[in-house]
């Protein structure tokens, strides 16, 4: 059963669920040398992530429609489309940061040595049912990307097992499109967030058939936003 209330906590004055003002470089270095920085169970290094936030905001420009739909607290899921799969999650992360100051926990940290650990440090989590369930139980805002569609501007296949783990929390469809000419990101990204998809209350959490219906509704909702 998914806990509805956010389990909020801070370590060394840093809230792992919220993007904080980055510390000065001197303070940050001093704290890192002394080991006084927070880590969460998934490997998120909130201090490092906060230091990188201004850089991300500077490089990735986003315009967001429907940002009022992004929950400002508690567990929730944003299901997004992706083309090649690298830049869209980063754009949505910036959009979430700008909209409500929360950290988006993007699903899909690979098991590849070095890369996976590095992505986990900035908030990614593994694409596994156990980790998605745990992240939602801890009250995080989880981003689940659909399968990559490469150059086609449609929604990809939804990950059925992962979305089955998301039943019981608000699930929002999100479309992410490049705003530049010829579908490039020269002018940034256009992001549209839809309202939470109403699941049939008769469906029990974890019901495979119910999950299949939910995933289809999500895919259609993302397609409509696109």
């Amino acid at each position: 059963m998914i806990a509805v209330e956010l389990h909020s906590r801070t370590t060394f004055g840093v809230d792992p669920d919220r993007v904080n003002m980055p510390q000065s470089l001197v303070t940050a270095v001093r704290r890192r040398v002394a080991g006084r920085y927070p880590l969460d169970a998934f490997g998120l290094d909130a201090q490092l992530s906060d230091l990188m936030a201004p850089l991300l905001r500077g490089v990735i420009k986003v315009s967001v429609a429907g940002d009022e739909h992004i929950p400002s607290r508690g567990p929730a899921v944003l299901v997004m489309n992706r083309g090649f799969g690298v830049f869209e999650p980063a754009a949505l992360t910036v959009a979430v940061m700008n909209a409500c100051g929360r950290r988006a926990r993007v699903v899909g940290a690979p098991g590849v040595w070095g890369v996976g650990a590095a992505l986990r440090r900035i908030g990614a989590i593994a694409a596994s049912v156990a980790d998605v369930t745990s992240a939602l139980n801890e009250g995080h805002l989880v981003v689940v990307p659909l399968a990559p569609t490469w150059l086609s501007a449609t929604a990809g296949s939804p990950p059925l097992e992962l979305l089955q783990a998301c039943m019981g929390v608000p699930v929002h469809p999100v479309s992410v499109r490049a705003a530049g000419p010829l579908n490039t990101a020269l002018n940034g990204w256009r992001i549209a967030v839809g309202p939470a998809i109403e699941a049939d209350p008769a469906i029990a959490p974890g019901d495979p058939l119910g999950a299949a219906e939910l995933t289809e509704s999500i895919r259609n909702a993302v397609d409509n936003l696109l």
Partner: peptide
């Protein structure tokens, strides 16, 4: 700890 369950709950 693996990529399939790095933060396991009791159902793992």
């Amino acid at each position: 700890r693996s990529n399939t369950a790095s933060v396991p709950d009791e159902s793992v």
